[in-house]
Structure formats: C-alpha cells, structure tokens
Design a binder for these strands. Structure first.
Lengths: 202, 202, 202, 202
DNA sequence: GATGAATGAGTGTTCATTCAT
DNA sequence: AATGAATGAACACTCATTCAT
C-alpha cells in the first residue's frame, strides 16, 4: 500500500524536521529531499505539492484535534444557567483529554499550531478560536440571559483567543505531559473566571 | 530635506501597504517599487536594504513602545507588598498611555506586532514578553515573599505571554481608540487577578 | 551517467569559453547559459554555484598539477651537496613530465593560471610559488650549509616566483607542446643557475 | 586651479586606497565617495568616469616610468658588439634610476603594476614588456649578428617578461628602497646572463 | 516507483552613470 | 562646485513545479 512506502515515510520524517525548524514558508523542498536522499520529483509522486506534503503530516491530527474540541462543547450544552455555579474541577475531564491529544504527537501539533504560516492551514488557530467563541459564546449568552445581562462580543472573542493561545503556549513551552497536566488546571480556572466576570456587558 | 522627499514618502507608503498585506518576508521590493513608480535601485538610495526600509517605517514607534513599557514598570516598583491590596483602576494610567501609543500610528504598530516575521524585528514580541516577565515576575516574587510563598516560573511566563498578547489582540481587532480604552480596563483587571492568584506555587 | 549528460557538457564548454574570454570574476552565468541554450537555473542542478562550475572545469587538472610538483621535489631531496655539481639535463625528466601535464589540457591550465582571479582558486599561483620556495629553498639552505654560506630569503622567493612564472609564460605563449619541450630546457638551466649563484648571501 | 581643489584631492586619496585594496575592477565608486564624504556625482564633475579617476592617479607616474625605460634603451645603443664584454655593474646606473622612479611614489606604481586589471591600463605590463623586448631584442639581434648566430624570438620574449616581472616583484615585495637597491644588482646580473646565454638560437 | 533534467519566474542587491538644480 | 535623486541593466542565486523515461 501507498502509505507504507519507505521513501514516503522518510520524506515525511525529513519534512517534519524541516518544517519544525524553518516553518512552512521558509522550508525548502530541495533541502527536505536532499536530506531524505531522494530527488525533488519524488515529492510530487507521493503528494500533490508542498501544501499536500504538509497536509500529509498535519492533516489527520488536525481533524482529531478539531473533533475533540467540537465534541467537548456539545457535551455540556444543556446546563441550566439560572442555578449554575462554577466549581473548580468542572472542566478537568476536557482539559485532560485535550492535553492527551495535544501530547500524543506533540511535534505535529506544534507544526500545526506554530509553524503553519504560509500553508493552507495558516488560519487553523483562527478556526479554533472561532469554534471556542461560538460555543463559549453560546454558553455565555445563555448565562447572560439567565443573569438578565448582555454579552460583550469583543470580550468574548478576546477570551476565546486567550483560551486557545494558552493551550498553544502550554504545548510549545512545556515538554513533559505530566507538567502540562499540572499547569492546565489553574490555567483553565483563570480563563473560566474570565468568562464569568468579563464576558458580560457592565 | 531628506525626510520630506516625495519619492521617499511614496516608497514608505507603498512599502507599508505591501508589508501589511503580505508580511515582511513575502513582501517584494520590486512590487513596492513598481507601485511607487520608481526602479528597484531607488530603495537603495534611501535605505540600506529591505530591513532598513522596514526599520524606517517601524523603528521609531517601536522605540517609543518599548520605552513606555519599561518606564511603567520602574514607576511603582517600591510598593510594600505586606499590606498590598489591589484596587480596580490601579493600572488605569498605564493602560491609557499604552493605548495612546498603540493607536497613535496603528498601522505601523500592527506591522510591528503582526507582520515582522523574517525581519530583524521578528522577535519583538518575545522581547516585550521578556520585559513584562522580568518586571511582573519581580513584583510577583516580592509579593510571594511577603506571602511566604514561592513563585511559579511557568505560570509567570504564561501570564506575561497572555498580557502581551492581549494588547496585541486589542490593537489588531479594535479599530477605534475609544473602544480600546473601554476594553482595556476589564482586560487588565483580569490579568492582574491572574497574577495574584496563579503566579504562586500552590 | 551524470558526467555524460549533454547539457552538462555544453554548459562546461560554454563556461570554459566565457571564463577564458572574460576571466572568472567578469564571466556571467546568464551569458554562459544563454550560449548553452538553457536557463540559469540549470547551472544549479549540475553545480553548486559559480565557483562549483569553475571547479568542475579546473579542479582535477589542478590536483594533478600540484601533485606532480610536490612529487618532483620529494624525489631528489637526499642529494649530497658537499660534492654536488649541477649538470645540464639534471631536471629534464621533471621538466618533461610537467610540460606533459600542462599541455594535456592546455585551455584548462590557462584558465587556472591566468583567469582564476575572483574564484576560490585565485591564489593557486601563490600556492605553487610557496611549494617551490619551500623545496628549492630547502635545497638551497642545505646547499648553503655545505658551502658554509647563508641563504638570502628574498632572492630565494624571487627565484621561486620566476620559476613558476616561466612555466606559466610557456604554457600561455607557446601553442605547440613540442616547442614547449624545446624551450623548457634552457629555461630551467637558466633558473638553476640563478639558484646556484644568487640564492646565497654575498 | 582645478587640481588644487580640496574635494578632488580627498577623492584621489580615497580612490587610491580603495584601488589598492580591491583592485580597479572590484573597487566601488560609491564606497570611495562615501569615504571621501562626497556624493557619487562629484566624481563625474572632476573626472570623466571611473577610468578617468584611475588615470588621474596613475597617468603621470606611468608616463614618467615609460619614458625612463625608453630613454635608457636609447642611451647605449651604439655599443660595438664585436668586442663587447659584459662587466658586472654595467647596468647599475639604469637600475638605480629605475628604482628611484619606482619608489618615488610606490603606492601609485603598485596600483599601476598590480591593481590595474579591468582599467584601460590593464595591459601596461605587456606594453613594458614590449618596449624591453624591442630594445633588448635589438641589442640581442646585433649581438647575435656579431657572433654570427641567430636570435631566438621566444626566449627573447620570455627574458623580457622575466625582466619586467622582476622589477614588479621587487617593488611589490620589498618595502625599503635601500633594500631594493641592494637586490636589484644581482637580479639584473642574472637577467643579463640570461640574455647573453639563452637569447641565441643554439 | 522515482529519477534526472530543466524551467521560468522570482529574490534582494550592486553598479557606474546621469542630470536638473 | 557639487548634491540629491534616480535609472536601468546587470548580478548570483533559489524556488516550487513539471515531465519524459
């Protein structure tokens, strides 16, 4: 089968290394191929083009990641906010499962989240922020209604941004998963506090 | 006089536009020059090279920005933390003056903070985070001592990152300065809360 | 096979011509390529860069040349100078073999010895003078000792210079190898006379 | 008067320095002018072009040099070769006067003899060799006639070459004029020996 | 299954030179 | 007497991409 091919594997490996070092835009196919001991043409046998090569590395983990995020938000969307009280630890499960995905293939995740500029995935972060915003925003809106207040759109967007950025910061700065698991809880707590205090119009 | 030259101005204008559209790395001198109706060589009369052109646009505002940040942190470093109680509005002055600088030449600030990758200013954000971390970190450490606790390094770094990113988010997403001034206060409040609650080892 | 490639050959041929006409520094890759009916990029498939192209033409003959020179000097270094008497024809073998190398690929040798300025081989002549000086100088020193005299450094350097320059003059001015073989003997004789009479301090 | 102008002088000085360091071809007018604190245009007020600037530095000394050489050869052209016997010291006067000229403005002479490649004086050495060949060749021919032999053209050219190269070697390698005066005599002696022994067909 | 060969458009940069003022 | 401004052509080099074999 195609995907088990030796050359393909070597190519993917060297590409991952190059993309990580230089970022998508500055990575050179020539260099990747010379590292993999194949000619540039080989890339075009296995992949459509530079973007296709990047996709082959990053595509599947990305789907998983997005799916996991989407799934989480659908889960507890039935909450009753009239009586809602946030307790520390509410989001621990989500945090943990996300960290698991993030660290399962950390290299690739870093590629996707920090080195994709120039590729067709360069707006993946905005996408994630969009999802978060849509969902947390939804929660916030219902929360606001329950409190008879109005949600503030910008603050909501900002908090979504901070949330995503925090996960990215974690995965790019903390090497060991155990450490990440330790840090994620207070981080989330802080973010949730933000949502509860500042997403509403004052 | 040098700086009043028409062509130079046109060049700077077209360059700003191109840099904003494509980012430093992908911007083309040829394209800038053809937009400005001059030959490529003209750039090299007025500026040292591509980086020099970018610097001419972005250099001065950057100095101002860094200076303002540094200045702020030196100001209230004599606080007594044994009796310290944070009051809302503590940092309003700083916030306001920073917003003023950020919006004085918003295009250029965006250039600097979001489009500089590839230029010699590409690590300006890290620099800013560094300054914030050093100073907030210092405060936090003394605060920790007063509370007989220990500061957590990673959380401190993360909060510095969030703080800087928040300002960048503001300037890149909020068009009108008046709106920015409104938003910055709750944002800062949230961040300060973070410092007080999560910078310490639990 | 690589080295049999038609385009590569044409490129080498046109490059040789251009280098001979203009010298390394003033030669234009563009011009070479247009003569060879390929695009500039083609050069970079076959060679590393301009220097690499030059090397491909000139490298191997250079190695041979230097090797031959070095070899010669190691050969008769056991001479006893107390009783040494130079006889005409002493160096005939060396002269002949050197001429053979020089004329085996005369174009290339001329390239190397007269058109390399600007390339990484631009100091090849100085290198050769160095070898000659080191070896003839060594002989001269031992000769001097045998005669209880002292060697003069400058005259030794000058004679080395003359020796090398004489070979270069020969190969660049005499077209037919047979003529060169005729001329080289009296030339060498004259140079050896120089060493014997003028390398010593008076 | 034009030639006393301050700027002109500074330009000449800086140009001399640049030409000496990089050689004519690689010297940059931009760089010369920036060193001289004038704009590039200034060069074209005082000189015709790059070559004109070089000429202004090198022209007059060159004329003197060529004149001196020509003069020498006319002087003793009435020699009677039937009875000619070469005595050591025969050419001492010529040697001395030439050294004087060569060292009077050594920088400029080095410029002319070693850094002129690319300029319109790049063949000045060939010119000098031509003069030497013509005159020594003339002597040799008459000498040959007196000996009832035939002159060898190539050897004559080669010896002319060596002669000129020897002077150049001297001026570029020996700093102090007194040393040069010491060395020139044995050098000349060796060269004259060459003429007497090897310029004739055997 | 992949190579070897080559393209074509692009990059930033440097240069001597010109000329109105 | 010289500047300030600009040209235009050249430079070596890099890139992703193509395609016959």
């Amino acid at each position: 089968m195609n995907n088990d091919n030796e050359t393909r594997k070597k190519l993917l490996l060297c590409a991952k290394k190059e993309f990580l070092e230089k970022g998508y835009a500055k990575a050179s196919l020539r260099h990747i191929c010379s590292e993999a001991d194949v000619t540039t043409g080989a890339v075009y046998f296995f992949f459509k083009d530079k973007d296709g090569l990047f996709e082959a590395i990053v595509g599947e983990p990305m789907q998983k990641l997005l799916a996991a995020i989407r799934e989480h938000f659908c889960a507890d969307s039935t909450e009753d906010f009239t009586t809602y009280v946030h307790k520390p630890g509410d989001h621990d499960d989500f945090a943990e499962s996300l960290i698991n995905i993030l660290y399962e293939d950390r290299d690739v995740v870093m590629l996707l989240l920090a080195k994709a500029s120039g590729s067709k995935y360069e707006n993946i972060i905005d996408q994630m922020i969009g999802i978060v915003e849509q969902n947390f925003g939804g929660l916030a809106e219902r929360y606001a209604k329950a409190k008879k207040a109005k949600m503030n759109k910008y603050m909501s967007h900002w908090l979504s941004h901070l949330s995503v950025m925090s996960f990215i910061h974690l995965v790019t700065h903390v090497e060991r998963k155990e450490d990440a698991l330790k840090y994620i809880k207070p981080m989330l707590e802080h973010l949730v506090m933000g949502w509860m205090n500042y997403a509403l119009e004052k």
